[in-house]
């Protein structure tokens, strides 16, 4: 589903990603772990299409299509979703309208009829329950006045409503207390499906206690130095990242 080949990315002229290779198949859950500054957020931002990143080499293909040639909204229509590390507040733009516009823009792109208000609200209410989102949040401005935990919960709620094929979770666990983490992880787990791939970017392995990955990658200094199963995450938790660096001779 997602094929990243030899991806090199620069920010302000500085090389951040130095040859990333990553293959994610439908139905898989990947975790990308790494210390601060290793390039984790750069990777998810580049996949989602944020400005300010210069791809100097390599490719990203999604369902066989060249993702790098698409505008951010086209990526969303194709089924890419980014749960932001720092969701922005947008006062005055109602959470529910945003989602309705997003869902229907994608449906138009796919040649499907738009959802009417009733069907849409039905879906919204179901999904809000999934992440135990207070219904009053639906009619508020996007993330307006939300606590850190509420913003993260809202991201997963949006993901549930938009039903992406590829979900990127950027440090979704940061800023969550243990109860909120459990709820958010429960929401993500219920969205696991054979048609959907999930890529989690995280600093800590804590999230992986709740969302079990199929494959764990270690991203250090802009390269994936090691990949393995869930046991790798536990080893990173116990031993840190330096041994991976040494082992790779980096």
């Amino acid at each position: 589903m997602l094929k990243i080949e030899n991806l090199h990315v620069r920010v302000d002229g500085k090389a951040i990603l130095k040859g990333i290779n990553l293959h994610v198949r439908a139905g898989e859950v990947h975790a990308i772990m790494g210390p601060n500054g290793s390039g984790k957020s750069t990777l998810s931002n580049v996949i989602a299409g944020r400005d300010g990143y210069e791809v100097s080499e390599g490719s990203i293909r999604f369902k066989g299509k060249d993702l790098l040639g698409m505008a951010p909204e086209e990526r969303a229509w194709e089924g890419v979703f980014l749960a932001f590390q720092y969701p922005v507040e947008i006062p005055g733009v109602n959470n529910t309208y945003l989602l309705k516009a997003g869902v229907n823009a994608r449906r138009r792109h796919l040649g499907l009829p738009e959802l009417d208000a009733m069907d849409f609200m039905q879906r919204v209410k179901e999904k809000a329950k999934l992440v135990e989102l207070d219904p009053s949040f639906l009619s508020r401005g996007v993330n307006e006045g939300f606590s850190g935990g509420e913003k993260k919960r809202n991201e997963i709620f949006q993901m549930a409503v938009l039903e992406p094929e590829l979900a990127l979770l950027d440090e979704t666990d940061s800023g969550l207390d243990i109860d909120a983490l459990r709820v958010v992880a429960g929401g993500v787990n219920r969205l696991r499906s054979p048609e959907r791939a999930i890529v989690m970017v995280t600093h800590y392995q804590r999230l992986l206690d709740y969302i079990q990955p199929d494959i764990v990658h270690v991203l250090v200094d802009g390269r994936i130095l090691k990949s393995g199963d869930k046991a790798l995450a536990l080893e990173l938790e116990a031993r840190g990242y330096d041994w991976v660096r040494e082992e790779a001779g980096a």
């Binding site: 944020r50 909204e73 969303a76 932001f84 922005v88 989602l99 997003g102 996007v142 949006q158 938009l162």
Partner: peptide
Amino acid sequence: FYLKSRGLA
């Protein structure tokens, strides 16, 4: 960017 990432043109 946030709005576009949710599918708004």
